[in-house]
Design a protein around this nucleic acid. Sequence first.
DNA 1: TACAAATAATAGCAAAACTATCATTTTTTA
DNA 2: TAAAAAATGATAGTTTTGCTATTATTTGTA
Lengths: 231, 231
Amino acid sequence: MKTQLHVKMNEALYLRNPESTILGKNILKQSIILIHKSGFENFTFKKLAELIGTTEAGVYRYFENKHKLLVYLTAWYFAWIEFKIMFHTNNMSNPVFRLMRVISLLSETVGDDLQTEYIDESLLHQIIIAEGSKAYLTKQVGDDNKQQFFKPYKDLCAVISKLILDCNPAYKYPKSLASTLIEMAHFQKFFMNNLPSLTDFSATKNDSDIVAFLTDLVCRSLSIKNSEASF
Amino acid sequence: MKTQLHVKMNEALYLRNPESTILGKNILKQSIILIHKSGFENFTFKKLAELIGTTEAGVYRYFENKHKLLVYLTAWYFAWIEFKIMFHTNNMSNPVFRLMRVISLLSETVGDDLQTEYIDESLLHQIIIAEGSKAYLTKQVGDDNKQQFFKPYKDLCAVISKLILDCNPAYKYPKSLASTLIEMAHFQKFFMNNLPSLTDFSATKNDSDIVAFLTDLVCRSLSIKNSEASF
DNA sequence: TACAAATAATAGCAAAACTATCATTTTTTA
DNA sequence: TAAAAAATGATAGTTTTGCTATTATTTGTA
């Protein structure tokens, strides 16, 4: 039996816990597929219901609206990334190596190592790249934040910023550098695939180039010798 | 008489040129006010029409839909920023100083130096921070890009990346660093005001902190001594 | 003055974004 | 195992959004 990862979600994100029923799990699973396919703007609860074989009202019993669903998926993703980071760097003693590993984990295409039956992590990763910012780039960001909807993002940022300080305690902007890493791991990948002239990776379209860019950025910012960081 | 800035826009962005008529200029002016006030998701052509004192159909004669309008505003903003950069750095011979100036121009609250009668640049700047990414984070990004809708963004990125190479011809990631600067000038400001724990500027809420962060990032990436950059 | 262009006024439609009701099925638990 | 509770399905209906079409009127211009 495989170890199953379970993420405890903020209860204010849903009306009925989608993880507690088959229909709920189906809503999560198929919404990821549908948002990935049609984009968040063209995604509706009606289309989702048809895909699942339930009714619109059925979906509304779980999520108040599609914005809450997106915030839910985003929160799940960041909690999952944080767990992944813990899992893959726990045994590393050198903070520089750990930070380099974090950059890979943020930038590289998701494998199938830590699976959840009803969530396709690889698709979710792609959704977050293209739609994740829309979870907080809204007028309600203040209210949503008060309800702790973005806690997983902030927690991840805190973990990375602590790691940054472990590498260089004198560095002045650990949190901003952490959020820059997270955002740029996503944006550079989006640009690489969709607006390539905004990046230097148009020719290769290779994740490892993004890793190299972010690694360079961090190493220089923290005065880490590149030789010290490679292994 | 003041020098009036005129930005030549991509004709595929509109149905009828909004700059050619009073109603069109009003659509631009009031849409900026309304999007700023209610956010892009809650913004509709009907509400805009009511605000202006025209009809919904009247607005539709100028813009196909609200997405095109947002792309128009985004394109206008980036063309304007590029002009501003040219204008304010033209007389500077030292590329490092120029680059530092660019960081300020990207990050700092917009003053009223280069004005256009029907566009409130300060409000537009705030809109771009919160809504700008939505112009390209869509399923149609490929089509929109083929129609050159994002040319002003790419041009700005090209200008900055050239400047980066002027400072350090050996630097490997000029375009990605340029797009990182542009995006982070916006995102760090959004975070500072709305999700402060993702930044190191929660206490001050001061633009100059963002400038300091980005300056540090760039100087270290390009091996520029901070003393060399300050003036 | 007449001609074209732009605008206003109005109507209407399809889809999206919900809410409500009630019957039926499934699950829980007393 | 029967009764209560919870979840689902089926259906219907409302308001708003997003968009198109038509016709009349105004405004600018040759």
